[in-house]
């Protein structure tokens, strides 16, 4: 039976991996363009609903009839589509207003609210759930050590999370195109002086962040359910994680995601579910007072 510390630790690790996927894209976009993308949650939601559209026939939209693709096909397709949506969000709206933080703030929240309305219109407010692991491919639960009955989809989410983080790490440290992203997030002027095309970097960042949000969204929908308001909580979570980890720091986001994941799960288990969210907020306030730049953040200097 699932009980005691091992179960708590494993659950915490699994949920933290999802939190990391949710937060990294958010922090990258802030790091590179200084843009607080409040539509980040909407991109997560897009991941879940695009997957539903591709893999299940419970919703349909005009032009694009819903289909029932195999999950192994539907998943990467959904991720690509969300990445493109994210890119379009930048190319069509954000790039024209990004110099004005207030307008960007408003524009992205409007996009998020509009996305909610679109989902409500086509999919209704009913809850949609889906299984990501095809029948017969893997058992639906697995045992890890003394803990049994762990959902396979959560474990796959954990693995995919770390593969994504690994690939992202290789990309931003080993390739010129990725290093340009990192350089721009360190100092935009410095990057420009070394010949980096900052506009192209930003567009690329939105694409990569969108892909990560797509992955996170598909797994989020699979482990909870797809509803028109599913973006709200993850967005606030991303905020907390990014502030604690240090705004703009990928490493910080990962560490903070695990910190929050373990904290929430532990508090939920030992103090009661109603306290789950509160301690994260307390931690947020402490970090803001004691370590305003976050665990791995630097003082920001966007000129």
């Amino acid at each position: 039976m699932l009980s005691g510390l091992p179960a708590v630790l494993i659950n915490a690790a699994l949920i933290s991996a999802l939190y990391a996927l949710i937060a990294i894209g958010f922090t990258m976009i802030f790091g590179v363009g200084g843009v607080l993308n409040l539509a980040h949650g909407a991109l997560l939601m897009a991941g879940a609903y695009v997957y539903l559209l591709l893999a299940r026939d419970t919703i349909s939209v005009p032009v694009f009839e819903s289909m029932t693709l195999h999950p192994l096909l539907a998943f990467p397709l959904a991720v690509v589509i969300v990445a493109v949506l994210s890119y379009l969000l930048y190319a069509v709206i954000v790039q024209f207003v990004e110099d004005n933080p207030v307008v960007t703030f408003l524009a992205t929240i409007v996009v998020a609210l509009a996305a909610t309305e679109v989902v409500l219109h086509y999919a209704g407010s009913a809850t949609h759930t889906y299984t990501l692991i095809p029948d017969g491919m893997l058992p639906s639960t697995i045992d890890i050590g003394p803990v049994d009955g762990i959902l396979t989809v959560d474990v796959v989410g954990f693995v995919v999370s770390w593969i994504s983080i690994g690939l992202l790490w290789v990309y931003v440290t080993k390739t010129d195109s990725g290093r340009a992203i990192r350089a721009t997030s360190m100092t935009e002027r410095g990057a420009q002086l070394t010949g980096v095309n900052v506009h192209a970097v930003r567009a690329r960042t939105w694409l990569v962040a969108g892909a990560l949000a797509g992955i996170g969204g598909v797994f989020l929908g699979a482990s909870t359910s797809a509803t028109p308001n599913m973006w709200l909580h993850p967005l606030s979570l991303a905020f907390i994680i990014v502030v604690i980890g240090g705004i703009g720091s990928i490493k910080g986001s990962i560490v903070a995601a695990y910190l929050i994941g373990f904290l929430q799960t532990g508090v939920g288990e030992y103090l009661g579910q109603n306290f789950r969210g509160i301690l994260s907020l307390v931690l947020l306030v402490i970090v803001l007072f004691v370590l305003p730049q976050g665990l791995f953040g630097r003082e920001f200097d966007h000129e």
Binding site: N11, T224, Q264, T265, E269, R276
Partner: peptide, 30 residues
Amino acid sequence: IDDFSPVINDVVESDADAVIRFFAHINASP
């Protein structure tokens, strides 16, 4: 509530024959 795993674990641990739940606000699909 958005993470039901701890609740389900509590139910499993309690060894109850059935859950009697009253959810109008909570969406218990997960």
